[in-house]
Structures are given as C-alpha cells and as structure tokens.
Design a protein around this nucleic acid. Structure first.
Lengths: 345, 345
DNA sequence: TTGAAAGCGATACCAA
DNA sequence: TTGGTATCGCTTTCAA
C-alpha cells in the first residue's frame, strides 16, 4: 500500500500516529495543543514527531479546515521609492509578529498588473490584502468584493474605502505646502515629479499645491512629470530641464526628498545659491535629509508607522476585534532652510 | 445537502460542472485547457464559470496534485538598506514574470528569526527559497536539506552552497579597495559600518580591506561598528565619533554609499576638505552618489541584476533546466574623486 | 481521553 | 470525448 502517491518522502500525520500507537486524531490534537489527551500520549507523539522529522502540511490543513492561509497579499508600486520600502518594512514586521506572511506584489504603478496579481493571490485563499493606492480596476474591485476578505488600502486617505484604509490626504498635504510657500512670499514656482498611467498620490499633492499657489495669487510656472523613477538622478536632470525651459521659478517643489536632493545638487552645481537664488522643497522627510547642512524644507510622513498600522488593522479584523475603518496618519510640515526665511517686519 | 461546509459562498468546480451539465472531470479539463473536450463543452463550461464567478481554489489543487504552491520564500535582512530593496525588486520582477509569488521574510539580521520564518514557510510547501547570506542555523540547514526544495543563497558568494548561489566575493572586494587606497598612498585609514549578531558580507569586506591595508604597510587605525542601520545618519555621527577618537585617519572606508555620504556631510560641516584633508570611500555605487558634485569613490555592484539572476536560477531549476549552481556577479571599482588623485611622477 | 468515519475541492487513473 | 472512483493529509463530527 503506497503511503504517498508522489513518494516524496514526506512524513505524514498518519505515520506519526502509527509509530506512536495512537490514531491520527489523537496525534492531530497533540500537535495543535488544544488539550484533550493525556500527558503520556503527548510525550509519545512528540517523540515520534521529533524522531521522524515530521513537518505538518499546512496546505492540507487549510484545505481540510477551510480556514484559508496565513498569507497576506501586499501590493507596492515599486521599491526604488524609499517611502514604499519603509511602508513594506512596517507591514512585514507587524504581520510576522502575528503569524502572517507577506506575499509581495510589485505593480509598477499599473492597474493591470495589480489586477493580475490580485487574481493570482486570491486563488491561494489569503487571509487578507493590503493594497497601495485607492484606484483599482473594476474587475479587481469585483474580485475583492466577492472574496469577502479584509482589505486595507494604504497611502491615499479614502473616506469610502473598499473595506479599511490608512494613509494621509495628499491633496491637503500639497495644499498646505503651497500655502506655506505663498506665505513666504513665493509667487512663481515650479514642480518636478514623475508620472505614471494612473492618477496617484503624487498627482493629488501637485493638485493641492497648485490650488494653494493660485489661490494665493501665484502661479505654477511649470510642472515637469518625468517618465522615470522618483529618485535622485531624475531630480537632478529634471531640474536642469526645468531651468532650461526658461520658466525661471523662484522655488521648486519636488515629488519627494530624493528628487529634491538631486535638484539641490544641480542648483549648487550651476552656482545657484539656495535659498538665495532659488528655493528647494521636498516631501517625505526621507533619511537623506538628515545629514544635509541646511535642513531641507519638506513634509514629514511616518511611513514605517503607516505600514504597521495597516498590518494592525488587518490583524485586528482577522481576530474579530472592532476596527476603525479609516485611519489618518497625517503629516507635519518641516519649515527647513532651503526656502527663504520668514519675513520679520 | 450542504454544498459547502463553511457556507462561505464560494463556488466550487462541482457546481460549475453541474450547471454546465458535465462531470467535474470534464470541467476540470476545460479549465486547465489541455484539450480532451469538444468546443461545445468548452463554451458551456466557460459560460458557467463566467456566470457563477468561479475562482479556482489553488489550495485544493496543490493538495490534490501534490505539486506544492507557486510561492517562493525570500529572506532579506532589512529594507532600510537600499541594496537589499533593489535585490528584492529584481527577484520580485522576475518571479512574477514566471508565475511565482514572493513570500517575504524580514530577518533583521538574525539567524533565529530566519529559522522561524523558514519553518513557517516550508510548512506551506513553497516552490523554492531564496535566502540572503551564507550562514543559517543548523536546524534551518537541516530543514532545507530534508525539504529537497531548490534554494538560492544570495549576496555572499559561496563556493559550496546548500544548493545554488549568486553573489560576489566580499572579502576580495574589500581587499581590492584596500589595495587601491594603498596604491594612492594612504597608510592610516579608518572604517565606519554597522554590526549585527552574525558575521556577514560587510564583515568580510572589512576583513579583506584590512588585510590589503596591512599587507601594504598601512594600518586600519580604527574600525567603528555601530549598532544601527547602515544609512545616512549613522554614517554622519559615526564619522563624528571616529574623528573624535583621535585616530586621525587620512581616509575613511564606509560600509556603503549611504553611510559614506553621511560621513561626507559631516566632514564638510566641520570644514574638512575632501579629498584634500580626508578621503571618503563608499561601497555599492548607490543612487545618491549619482548626483554628487564629486564622484564618490566606491564599488559598483549590480543589485537589481543579482536579484534577477537569483530568480532565474530558481525558475530554471524548477523547469528542470540545467543550472550553473554558482554565479558570480562581480563588482567594479569606481575610482571617483573623493580620494586623492593618482600620483603623476 | 480516544477513535472511526466522513468529508474538504481538486486531480489521476482507468474504463467506456 | 467523456465520466466514475479513489485519493491527497488533515479536520470535523460523533460516538465510545
């Protein structure tokens, strides 16, 4: 009689039970440790588990008990962006602590890749999902809805999420920065960022920013959206392009600190004084800013915390605890010194 | 008769088959598309799949066919280190392309966390594993061995890997940098990096570096290993500590470019001229270096490629292709201009 | 405290 | 081109 069809050499519960001289059920109970067996039995079963090197087959468990897996699908646009890497780290830490595993999906900022990935992940019956961004393809939304699984949308704040949501209001955040710059007397400003297929948080920030600037009587002379990653070098050459276009901004707002630092370097390279000749403004309060001689004007966002909160919300829901469906992690303006100082009249 | 014990509303193959007026087997064949059914049957089954919103249960499939899952466990020490984030991105991209999913494990540089994570991941019958580093706990090694799964160890090069390996020789890499600095006339050098429980690649680099320096008649006046992450700010304050210790190095070698940039900023802050007063040397040729006015002396490593190669090796093995078990991605010295120029006699 | 039997949702195998 | 039946390894259920 073949113990294993595949003959893969794996030890099954039945073998452990037989070796221990008990039934499968008894062995199963011992392994799950819920009680319902004698100490003598426990010891014998565990001894056989050790001797035979038994590794439980969680696939079979998930199948038999219809409890799904302990996997949590996490979609992230790209890891080149430090902010997302931090968010992922926060998620991974917390999930791991609670016995869940992160199944990573890199969407490259496209809804189509996200949809494909969601379809695949769902077929593995995950415990839940964490998705970056608030927009998903119609099919993806339908699949998520009918799966009945807990879902946390992160990064963008979303007052009517699919299920749960944690992030910040990027429009407001951009608006606040715009108003702040107007308050410092800037009227003619520029923007350097990147663009993708779908509207995203960075776009919302830009919109809020532009609104505040025009509301304040200023103008966004030029918005440069590069087809590139939001990292150092695009910030550098983007600034070169911006200045070469002749729009002569008094100040440049960047998609994030990495790009802002690239821009800062370009300005210094061509002899522009910051903030004397031009103002430089980043976003995200990223690690690179911590060592610059002039504090970079930026916006602080707790990315690690955002990830942790997302994981906590999901785990909370899975344990049946009541969970606040929308959490705002907020932001904090960092005045910095890469823009001109406050007027002292 | 209850169709589903849990009553979870999920549609099963049996229901699709019944609705289409065929047997489960026929429906199964249609869904897997291997042929063996008429066009009329195919159409009817697919129509019902669409109508009922059937999502296959891969857990059941994996269980029934004993084929394991399409998950690949990937362990990474931490994502704060840009190099690892890049490696992970390379892995994720390639695995996704081939229909595998990344199950992420953050080990925080400890073997114990890696062991726990390996145990959990193995119980889900993954298709294979990719592990960062060459050292693993004895139990982890035993589990990996007896699982019979393909395993790729990355980052460190390892002539006798568990199974497969891709990386670079960090000792040699450090040695080459050391010899290079000696060649530029440096004799009294310092080192700033971080340390963890286990010996790792950075340690190997430092050892190779120190060997080359002493071989060349020089001395590593001070090695600073901070209990911190290998990022910008530790580079900054580590340099402060190093210089305050009075060891007066002519040149400082850092664990990576992020730390080196932090050090560079500190030096400029206190008025030290680079490379006139002090040499600054990084490692990894990271993005931040791309925008500095002086090219940072460093060592280029193709992290994205390393990740891709790791994934390709694993996928190759899974498809039964012959795979070279050890791949060296190498490194390339970047002379830069943050150390004193070559002597022209 | 223990065990026997029935199933979970798919696939493999063989027969028609 | 089809369908019946056994089976994967475990849990659930019920009875002892």
């Amino acid at each position: 009689m073949s113990e294993n069809r595949g003959g893969n050499g794996k030890v099954s519960l039945a073998e452990v039970a037989r070796a221990a001289g008990v039934s499968k059920m008894t062995a199963s109970r011992v392994l799950r440790g819920g009680g319902g067996y004698s100490e003598k039995t426990r010891a014998e079963v565990m001894a056989q588990v050790e001797r035979l090197g038994y590794v439980p087959n969680r696939i079979a468990t998930a199948f038999a008990s219809d409890q799904g897996t302990t996997f949590v699908g996490v979609s992230i646009p790209d890891l080149g962006n430090e902010a997302f890497a931090r968010v992922l780290e926060g998620i991974g830490d917390k999930l791991g602590l609670h016995g869940y595993q992160t199944v990573l999906g890199l969407t490259r900022h496209t809804l189509a890749e996200e949809e494909d990935w969601i379809r695949t992940v769902l077929s593995w019956r995950p415990a839940g999902l964490i998705l970056t961004g608030r927009s998903h393809s119609p099919r993806a939304v339908e699949m998520l809805r009918s799966s009945g699984l807990p879902v946390v949308e992160i990064w963008d704040l979303n007052s009517s999420p699919l299920d749960m949501c944690v992030g910040l209001d990027h429009y407001d955040c951009g608006f606040e920065m715009g108003r702040f710059l107007v308050g410092r007397g800037y009227r003619r400003v520029g923007y350097v960022g990147t663009s993708h297929d779908t509207a995203n948080a960075a776009t919302a920030r830009l919109e809020g920013f532009a609104k505040a600037v025009t509301d304040g009587g200023g103008t966004v002379a030029r918005q440069l959206c590069l087809h590139d990653t939001a990292t150092f070098y695009p910030g550098y050459y983007g600034t070169e392009q911006l200045l070469a276009s002749g729009c002569e901004p008094e100040c440049v707002f960047y998609q994030n600190d990495s790009m802002a630092f690239g821009g800062l370097q370009y300005c210094q390279r061509i002899g522009l004084h910051v903030p004397g000749d031009i103002g430089i403004v980043g976003w995200g309060d990223m690690p690179v800013a911590s060592v610059l001689s002039h504090r970079l004007t930026s916006m602080h966002v707790s990315t690690l915390k955002l990830g942790r909160v997302a994981a906590e919300m999901l785990v909370g829901r899975l344990s049946g605890e009541p969970v606040e469906p929308v959490r705002d992690v907020g932001y904090a303006l960092i005045p910095g010194s890469t823009i001109r100082p406050e007027r002292v009249d």
